[in-house]
Each structure stands twice: as structure tokens, then as C-alpha cells.
Design a protein around this nucleic acid. Structure first.
Lengths: 226, 226
DNA sequence: TGTCCACATTTTGTCGACAATATCTACGAT
DNA sequence: ATCGTAGATATTGTCGACAAAATGTGGACA
């Protein structure tokens, strides 16, 4: 039998739209017309609607009943709440991972991070992807599907921020070396602290860049709420 | 103008179905036929489908493409993962709430808990509702919509467990007095510990009752995975 | 000139029908 | 007798059309 060709339109469109939102090909705040999207994908509105519903519940879209959808705006408040939740969940993941990772898994993680040995000359898209995978794998060891799905979603939102701020982004890079060291030392408390520091640092840079650079542009100012 | 009469069918049906699942009027593992539900609500399948999609993404249903939906089964693994996530998120909420609650809010919480002064003679439904409100309000003070929505969802799932195990449930009641005391003392660390203990205790009781009592019934055994 | 109302337009919400897919059953070949 | 297969059946996936709601526009009237 063929591997996996037949997929639901809904799923295909969902992934496609989500990807466009994450990479900011669909800009934050941009309106999304169902009929228009349907024409673009050459389908009826039904699969579009289902995809939009999913995206709305995952905060990639904002929908007003009987009015329409817009791509979720980005605000400092939003950035803060996102990283606050990541802090809470991922520090817990890091702590438990420290005692549960086996040698092979640790080696895999380290190999993954080899990209950031010289972050200056690495491709930004690759760094973003690597970062996502690293955090994702730490969530994986929880073996808790709820946690994995949650972290996955939060990481996707973070990636969207990465793409959104990429142009303004100074090429600073928050490394994972301290987390890695704590994991190798099998030190849960230290891993928790390292992860907490990592996320907090990332959040501070993100919100700083966002409020200082992006806030200056009038067209985007509407999305900024203090 | 009238307050808010006109509501989307989708929303109405979503809430209705969710409520039936939570109260176990729709039993775990029971199949859900779209056409059947549509006939029951006297609508077309469209609003049903949208409601089912939402319920699936919130883990109230399990859907297999081109096959159908069943009400999400309950397993010990599931109970553990639910309470593990609640532990992570709600301990953080309790800690920050301890320093952020004002006097009025503390009084409101205490009044809410007056029901459990003598839990033996209280109505079980009321206790369940009270418990949900208490945890929900602690999440509220985070002022973080992501956290609030997440806790809300996890609480709804917990309530479903309450209803499911209600018949087998010994009338033990895990009080909130220690949490309340820590909040009144404005002691964040203590509130975190108290909340952690509270959730862990609840989880232990839940999974014990589930595996010992429910596991004995053949019709339900299929849902139990270790 | 400003306000209000009716109508036209646009967009989402719902519907019934049909297509695609999976499951079940009966029949036939070995 | 068993396995495989072809057709029948049931259920979900997709579609195009219509209904309902919200918004925009123009004119009548004070």
C-alpha cells in the first residue's frame, strides 16, 4: 500500500496556514477571508473553516463571530505571558529530564547543539529550528503527552516571534551550554535554574527588541498593548 | 438592545456536549456518531463537526480520520499526566498568588471555602463546583490568559474524573485549608508546597480508586493502560 | 449640516447532497 | 474449511447554495 498520500484537506491547509503565520508570510493583524483562502487552495470553504477553528483555539488567529478572522497580533503582554508559561513548564521539564535522560539521549542533545558552537556564522533558520528541537526533546522525556503538546504549541508561537523580530533582532544568541552542563551533571536543581535563566533572558531580549524597535512603526502600533 | 440571545449553534452544541461528557452522561469510550447527534439537536452535521473538532483538540473526544469519534477513555496514565501538569502549573500559580492577592480577594476565597467546613454533609456537586472555582481563581490572579485557559481546561477534565469516580469515591475530601493559611500568611514558598501536596494527594486518591475499583469491571478494562 | 433609517454589499453560519473511505458480509477458489 | 475478494453498508470528508448577521452607503428629513 502507498505510504501516506491521502490526507485530509483540512489537515493540509491547517499546516500550510500555520506555517505561513509562523513565518510571518501572513503578517500579524492581517485579516483572513475564508472565501479568499478557499480560492487560493482551490477548495470549498469547509476545510478552511475547520483549519481556522483550530488555528483560533491555538491562538494563531483571532476570530470574532459573524465578523471574521485576523492573524493574531503580537503584543508585549503576549510575549510576557508566553514566556511566563514556558518558564513554568519547561523549568519543570528540565529538572526531571536531568535525572531521566540516558547517555545516548544526552549525546544526541549535544550533537544537536553543535550548531551553536559558532552562532555568528550559522544560518538563522537553522538555529531557530535547532532551538525548537532542543526544547522539544526535553519535553519529550516527560513522557507526558499533555506536556509535550503544550510545549510544542508554545515553541511554535516562540518561533513565530523569532521570525517576526528576525529583521530587528541583534544577532545575540542565548546558548544552551549551561543547561547542557547541568544535564550532563545529572543535577536537576541546576538544570531547572539554567532553564529558567535561559528562558528569562530570551524573554527580556524579545520584549526589549519588540517594544523599542517595533513600537516605533505606526502600522504595527495598534497591536501593542501595555 | 438585547443582552446576548443569539448564539452560534456550534457554541451551544459544544457546551452541551462538553457538559454531557464531563458529567459522564456520555460515558468514556462511547462512540459518537455525527449524524445521530445532529438528529438529536435538530441541526445539520456542520455545527456538530465543529464542536467535535474543538472537543477533540481539548481531549474530550478521540477522533480517528474517516472512522469516527469516541468519548475520551480514562486511564491511569491519563490521570497521572493530568495531575502532573496541574501540579506544575498550579504550584506556580499558588506561589505568585500568595504575594499578589489583596485582602478582599482573600476574603472571597475564604467565603468560597466555607462549604468545606463540614464536607461530610455538603452536596457533592457543590463541593466539586467549589473546588473548581477555588483553583480557577488562583489561576486568575496570574492575569495570564494562557495560564487561565490552560488551568480552566485541566480543571474541567478533573471534574470529569470527579463525576466518573463519584460512585466509587470514598467520601474523603482533600481540604484547602493549608493552602488558604499560606495565602493569608502571604508566604509564597509555603503556598507552593501546600498546593503541591494538595494536588498530589488528590492524584493519589484518584488513581488508587480508579485502578482498584474501576479496573475490576470488564467493560471498562479496555480503557486502562499502564 | 447633522442624524437617522432603509437598502445594498460583504462575510460568516448553516444546510442538504454527494464523494471518498472504512467496515462488514457473502461468496467462491483452492 | 480457510483465505481472499467483491460488493453492500455505514460513516466521515467535501462541496455549492442559501440564510443570517454585520458593515457600508445613500438619501430623506429636521
Amino acid at each position: 500500500m502507498p505510504p501516506r498520500t491521502p490526507q485530509r484537506l483540512t489537515d493540509r491547509i491547517y499546516k500550510e496556514l500555520r506555517s505561513e503565520i509562523i513565518t510571518c508570510k501572513l503578517a500579524p493583524g492581517a485579516p483572513l477571508n475564508e472565501l479568499e483562502v478557499a480560492r487560493r487552495f482551490r477548495t470549498s470553504r469547509t476545510p478552511i473553516r475547520e483549519a481556522c477553528n483550530r488555528l483560533t483555539h491555538q491562538r494563531f488567529l483571532v476570530s470574532v463571530p459573524n465578523k471574521g478572522h485576523i492573524v493574531a497580533p503580537i503584543s508585549v503582554k503576549d510575549i510576557l505571558s508566553l514566556y511566563q508559561l514556558r518558564f513554568i513548564v519547561e523549568t519543570a521539564c528540565a529538572e526531571s529530564a536531568a535525572t531521566r535522560l540516558n547517555r545516548t539521549e544526552i549525546e544526541e542533545l549535544e550533537e544537536l547543539l553543535s550548531l551553536e558552537k559558532n552562532p555568528e556564522e550559522a544560518d538563522k533558520d537553522e538555529l531557530i529550528e535547532m532551538n525548537k528541537k532542543f526544547h522539544r526533546r526535553l519535553a519529550d522525556v516527560s513522557r507526558n503527552e499533555r506536556i509535550i503538546d503544550l510545549v510544542d504549541l508554545l515553541l511554535l508561537e516562540s518561533v513565530r516571534l523569532d521570525y517576526f523580530l528576525m529583521d530587528y533582532h541583534p544577532s545575540e544568541w542565548t546558548t544552551h551550554s549551561e543547561i547542557m552542563a547541568a544535564l550532563k551533571a545529572r543535577d536537576g536543581a541546576r538544570a531547572r535554574l539554567a532553564m529558567g535563566g535561559h528562558i528569562q533572558l530570551t524573554q527580556e531580549r524579545m520584549s526589549k527588541v519588540f517594544s523599542s524597535e517595533v513600537g516605533l512603526f505606526g502600522s504595527l502600533k495598534a497591536d501593542v498593548q501595555l
